[in-house]
Nucleic acid binder design. Structure first.
Lengths: 344, 344
DNA sequence: TTTAGCACTCGTTACATTTGAGTGCTAACA
DNA sequence: TGTTAGCACTCAAATGTAACGAGTGCTAAA
């Protein structure tokens, strides 16, 4: 395909453009990179690369800017090479930052997004785990004087959700335990999905006492499970976008922001990304759903016990720092997975 | 002080400036407001108002811009008049939006901030309740198989906090209930503050069994209480600032953003605002703590059972829409107070 | 095949000019 | 004495023009 020198020239341009954000001229390359040829030669190569669709000009006598196709080539190469090179120090740092304990799903996910945007200076998005397939490990009912009943749902992956059933029907402590045991028996080893389907049908046939109480209780449990399996999306560090020169223009910045704040669209895009393990990258136009064509999204999945249950991503201009971001995101998602596994 | 006509001219300028953000000239006023005098007369009045410190010019031949002093006059007048005029419809709308049930403090507070910024299109800040003086109504310990013990703290205002004590010390169900009862007895009718102080001293004298278990448990309880009484600050809608023409300049926008993201400073400012019930407003330079001198902050308090326990505020350029924001914030804070009271 | 050299392009910058919204002052008027 | 029309003046913003320079493509020689 591309001969070695063309490759070198292209990479030089991509790297330069990633940190300057200005069109790159042939002289810049010949000065800053040791290619052993003159600017005129590079000029010829650049002209070829433009014909091949890897570069473009902003106007007839300007320097060149890498195209989506160029980034794609670059990124695919990175993904191949990058396997080994994980920085010990950075690894340690991320581990420490993430060390804070928590069992609340939303809290873990939300603080992940915060941390990720803080260490990268990019905008981050994190989608909460898909718990559809998870099972309920234990259900606890705790009577709270004068308020109602606290429902605690413990998932098999150690995550916890609780909610309140507000009622003034008084139920004996013993009865409560009975009901609790009864429900635990029902739920035992069923997935969330299965439980949701059978929630009402099964239960009333068998229990005769406390029908009213139970009816209310089940509604709350149902709502909790629904919340548990619904996918939430958090983004952090949108402001970081203002540091990129391409977003000096307020209107562009605003359209970026409203893109990131359109949770539905973003969720859709995240879900469309390849399910294969590891890193997935969408560059510019490749992403047909986005109304903005000059942003890239790097996503990684995180897992519990090897099963993919959520996504974490970084968003920025197509000219994003793929090299570092890929590395950071890899380390990061594996640590988040570890944390989630630890709770198991 | 100011005669009636000067007052009218000043108000006309303030109102015009609030919605145009451009210096106001004498002709604009004479055209858009029915003052019955010519632009030349208004020009004279404006000149006087400038001498009195209510107006200033951006350059020698520009229109006039209201000063902080002018806004102060305007706002004080608004606060006097506004008492009665609460819009039924808007009232209803806010009530509906806030209707979603929740018992988690952070959740209530966070979603309040979101809603407030959404309905006003300004940046909102909300500080979580000060629960120092609250009491623990009930403590519950729930054993969770293979994980440890779930601790549920129910406050006397109905708010709930839970955390996990991760341990593999196995404790009999009966013993757990005993410990739970024991702790409840200790905590009963003490404020958070009091509990924190006495937590360790009291307890070990009396309990002999399960010392290790208890030691770990108390550490977690302590941490939970600390979190419960610590003040958190949430802000939402920072992006709204980009819609104001005065923040077209990215650098200004960035400095606004870093101001709002400096939680400590902001908390400090919120706490300095007057404790008197109702609305408090800080205009521009009046706020000596802020590094930015051209923003205003409107704050309201929210209460539980009449006691002030948190603050909610709106931040924007000094040229903010005081009239509407005051009204909205009043309604809003009273509804939030209601929600919190309901849980009582 | 490479490269020095040169004409050409076009966005950026700097500077001069024009425009217009606004002021302040003065003189006339009710 | 307060009000107003009229006019000269100010200054930011818009417009126009010229010079600059970073870049290209092409040609001809090494």
């Amino acid at each position: 395909m591309l001969d070695e020198r063309k490759m070198k020239v292209l990479y030089a341009i991509i790297k330069s453009y990633i940190d300057s954000a200005e069109p790159i001229g042939s002289r810049t390359i010949s000065k800053n990179f040791e290619l052993g040829v003159s600017s005129a030669t590079i000029r010829n190569e650049m002209s070829d690369l433009e014909d091949l669709g890897y570069l473009s000009k902003t106007h007839s006598s300007s320097g060149r800017v890498p195209s989506d196709k160029a980034y794609r080539l670059y990124v695919d190469e990175l993904l191949k090479l990058n396997k080994s090179s994980i920085d010990k120090l950075e690894n340690q740092k991320i581990k420490e930052i993430l060390a804070k304990e928590s069992w609340d799903i939303d809290e873990i996910v939300q603080s992940s997004a915060k941390i990720l945007s803080a260490i990268t200076n990019y905008t981050s998005v994190v989608a909460t785990p898909k718990l559809k397939g998870s099972r309920i490990k234990q259900l606890q009912l705790v009577s709270i004087e004068g308020l109602g009943v606290l429902i605690v749902i413990v998932c098999n992956n150690g995550l916890i959700k609780n909610s309140i059933y507000k009622t003034n029907i008084e139920v004996e402590q013993e009865e409560l335990i009975k009901i609790c045991n009864f429900l635990n028996e029902r739920f035992n080893d069923k997935t969330m999905d299965e439980i949701l389907v059978n929630l009402n049908i099964d239960i009333f046939k068998e229990v005769l006492d406390y029908q009213d109480f139970l009816k209310g209780l089940l509604i709350v449990i149902q709502r909790s499970i629904e919340e548990l399996i619904s996918i939430e999306l958090y983004s952090e560090g949108i402001m970081n976008i203002l540091n990129f020169p391409e977003y000096r223009d307020i209107e562009k910045a605003k359209s970026f922001i409203s893109f990131v704040e359109d949770k539905n669209l973003l969720l859709n895009i995240l879900q469309k990304t390849s399910v294969s393990q590891g890193i997935d990258i969408l560059i510019g136009q490749e992403n047909i759903y986005s109304p903005i064509k000059d942003i890239s999204i790097i996503t990684a999945t995180y897992t519990i016990g090897g099963r993919t249950i959520g996504k974490v991503g970084l968003i920025g201009p197509t000219r994003m720092d793929y090299l570092n971001l890929i590395r950071t995101l890899k380390i990061f998602s594996s640590h988040v997975s570890n944390i989630l596994d630890l709770n198991d």
